[in-house]
Design a binder for these strands. Structure first.
Lengths: 274, 274
DNA sequence: GTTGCGCGTAAAGATCTTGTGATCAGGTTG
DNA sequence: CAACCTGATCACAAGATCTTTACGCGCAAC
């Protein structure tokens, strides 16, 4: 199912450029001439790309952390539509560009409806093709990060998207990137977010069944939030559903009541009963 | 500076469809035949669109709150590239699709680099063109489309899909996830729902013969509903069929009878029997 | 009135979810 | 290269929830 073969990774540059800003592309195509021309252009752009001669599994694609996938339907064969749909739906954070030979309108419509971001017909100019890929990636990026967002305060916590960090009394919570992303997502929504939603919007692709990553990060977040702001609770569990963000002050009274022992509680009960 | 002329707004439908989920498109084109064909398709989709025969200012476009703008470069004239760039950079949340006559690779590359999301060459198929627009808009949708379902009130009860919970007088009924799903389903339908229907829509698969799960959950629901809103009854049994949701106030008389103790009830029975 | 079946009710056991700590792999920094 | 940090995954325990089962009552048909 996974005959993924990586022929070359010429773009595996050594520079310390921020990968987040560069194009990470995989090309699923078998035409040597096409790949040759494309490679030249991609190299010139300092683009990190990878050429595949056979479909990779969704998991393999996830592991590549791509911005974009270019695919020739001819390589996919009969199960191509299904593969396309699966890839598009599972990797919502990745742009998918179909670049294939002559096709009918119906085929192109089908491909676009399944989730492809663009359809380019071969033969095509490499420069133009790359522009299409960049345009698609640009759009994905924009969708993911709606520019600079203003800082927001919740209880004793301040969330600063511009600094990728949260603070309590000017003191950083020392959140890691993922921790911050989850806190940011949660704090930006009043409603209950299901784990799948959180995972998809933070990781960029569908959550595997039984994955506990969201739980683990929520635990770390709570830990740091509690350490920085002990009298408040921020992330609430909705059993069987997910999590909801809402700053709530825990009264000292309540906490004292919680500390009442069972014996004392029993005494109180009998006292009231009299 | 603002020669914007709105020729028609045929897509301004009267239905209560949520605008947030629909495509809001402006088409900047002067070809009557092209517009005719496109209009038909857009109408069929229930899409809200607007046709412009001259470039609108950026501010005017902002005011239209568009998801996408389709533009024919021929309409823009000499300052077209500049206009395109301005629009793309200023309205980063809007997809820009260039749909124009024959062009050179250099032109298309230029357009895409300036920020256009797609470039379609006329003549083209309307269906395909719309698919391209939808593909461009899709991601932005995803970010804004947390599918907020409105809260609904029935009698003294308020059902809140965003919180996965129901309330009576601001007080949570403490429904579990499944309990809520069943209440939500029932409350969203006026008719009688058979157990099999309820089971299938809540559990996601067919109900086994003789399964009493639905009954048990209805009981728990009634219990919590009664505790929170004693004067009303919400879920009604249709013997041999299923359940129906309908808020109904119960008379005070009936309630008094309900409050009669078992012993008193026995007395009453014998009294009536005499 | 009687009978059969569907329904309400309750409780116990099974199952699923979540919190938590620990471990492992991969990448980065110095 | 080694120390360190981050993120992914696992195992376990405690709780919450769901399913199953049993019993008795009410409804409808005869």
């Amino acid at each position: 199912m996974s005959p993924e073969r990586s022929e070359a990774v010429p773009g595996a540059t050594t520079t310390g450029q921020r990968a987040g800003n560069r194009l990470r592309l995989a090309v699923l195509d078998r035409d040597p001439g096409f790949m040759q021309v494309l490679s030249n252009r991609l190299d010139a752009l300092g683009c990190e790309y990878r050429s595949l001669s056979a479909p990779a599994t969704v998991d393999a694609l996830v592991a590549m952390r791509l911005n974009a996938l270019m695919v020739d339907l001819a390589v996919l064969g009969p199960g191509g539509w299904e593969y396309l749909e699966r890839v598009c739906s599972r990797l919502s954070g990745m742009a998918v560009i179909v670049c294939t030979g002559p096709s009918s309108v119906a085929q192109r419509v089908r491909g676009l409806r399944l989730g492809a971001d663009a359809w380019v017909t071969k033969p095509c100019h490499a420069e133009e093709l790359i522009c299409v890929v960049e345009a698609a990636v640009r759009r994905h990026r924009r969708a993911e990060m709606p520019a600079l967002e203003a800082a927001a305060a919740f209880g004793e916590i301040t969330v600063r998207p511009d600094l990728y960090q949260a603070y309590a009394n000017e003191i950083s919570l020392e959140l890691t990137a993922r921790e911050f992303e989850i806190l940011h997502l949660l704090s930006g929504s009043d409603r209950v977010l299901r784990r799948e939603e959180i995972y998809e919007r933070v990781w960029g692709y569908a959550m595997a069944h039984g994955d506990r990553s969201v739980d683990v990060f929520v635990r770390k977040l709570r830990q740091k939030l509690r350490a920085a702001s002990p009298e408040w609770s921020y992330i609430h569990t909705h059993f069987g559903v997910g999590y909801r963000f809402a700053p709530e002050r825990e009264d000292a009274v309540e906490r004292e009541l919680d500390l009442v022992t069972d014996a004392e509680a029993a005494e109180l009960d009998t006292a009231f009963a009299r």
